[in-house]
């Protein structure tokens, strides 16, 4: 449904998106996971036709977003990161406007307006100006305006930013329900937990490039099921590096004078061995964190930095 090939977008000398390629299929949720500034929103901007790529192609249901933008845009629904709604209009009027922008009118528009209002749980407050709504309600309405025309492809750009936990659960449920109806969902986030819980497949992006891509199972395999051990304190780096090299099946992901990150199979069982080796160097360990293999550990493994840095 979405085919992105060698996408490049530059802002002056800065390359925001650098050769990004991926495919997303109908009925699936494809995630774009990366830290802030990784190029996720720029990628969404190019796919939605808002930004003109410098190179590469984007096809939506076979329609080129540059060459046949109107046909491509008709198939797209976009839920932007910001709450892009008219505060002085009611929920019903907002949905009617965005539905009208996608070509809906008359009984179809009314039917779909009623349906999405019920879907996002705003039917009973549909006539109020939305400036009276809470942040979570506005987020849900923001979502509703993106799906009013029943798009075949839905682009969601960090739709849960600044949302309370309950509204986040609601939005994630709405996203799943859209995929279940056969919609191809492209979901960008910097929340690793969201991506893990929601996406069937994803691409991890950093610095405008895809650094890892695949289904959740494939990506987990790339972590080699190794636990991640993070230590904070004061460390003698050359001494510790030498000590840890002597241990089997241990990989130093990142090492500084104040922090060390290590990937180790069966990390829990090997904790005394590792801490003992480090302790022999005279290190002052103040904090120890052991985490199970996940996307975060994959990101750290690939980039040497944390997702939220």
């Amino acid at each position: 449904m979405i085919e992105v090939r060698d996408l490049v977008k530059k802002y002056g000398s800065v390359v925001a998106v650098d050769g990004v390629s991926f495919d997303a299929a109908a009925g699936s949720i494809f995630g774009l996971l990366g830290p802030n500034g990784a190029g996720k929103s720029t990628t969404i901007g190019c796919i939605s036709g808002l930004l003109r790529p410098h190179a590469g192609t984007v096809r939506v249901l076979g329609h080129d977003i540059v060459g046949a933008s109107t046909k491509a845009k008709k198939e797209l629904g976009v839920v932007p990161q910001e709450i892009a709604l008219y505060e002085d209009l009611s929920a019903r009027e907002n949905i009617a406007y965005w539905g009208g922008a996608y070509g809906l009118s008359g009984p179809d528009l009314k039917r779909r307006t009623d349906e999405v209002l019920a879907l996002v749980g705003l039917a009973d407050r549909a006539k109020e100006p939305i400036k009276k709504y809470s942040g979570g309600m506005k987020r849900r309405l923001n979502f509703a305006c993106g799906i009013v025309h029943e798009p075949k492809v839905l682009l969601l750009d960090e739709p849960t930013v600044g949302v309370d936990p309950q509204s986040r659960v609601n939005i994630l449920d709405l996203v799943r329900s859209q995929a279940q109806t056969g919609t191809c969902v492209l979901y960008t986030t910097h929340y690793m937990e969201e991506a893990e819980a929601l996406c069937d497949s994803l691409a991890i992006v950093d610095g405008g490039k895809v650094i890892a891509q695949g289904t959740m199972r494939e990506l987990r395999q790339r972590t080699e099921e190794r636990d991640l051990l993070r230590l904070n304190g004061q460390f003698d780096v050359p001494h510790i590096e030498k000590k840890l090299h002597d241990l089997d099946h241990i990989e130093i992901i990142q090492i500084h004078e104040t922090q060390i990150t290590i990937a180790a199979g069966q990390g829990g069982n090997r904790l005394p061995e590792i801490l003992g080796a480090i302790g022999e160097t005279g290190a002052d360990i103040r904090e120890t964190t052991l985490s199970q293999p996940n996307l975060e550990s994959l990101f750290i493994k690939l980039t040497g930095k944390e997702l939220r840095e």
Partner: peptide, 9 residues
């Protein structure tokens, strides 16, 4: 809202 409008047909 202006930016969002530009993503519509």
């Amino acid at each position: 809202t202006l930016t969002r409008t530009l993503t519509t047909p």
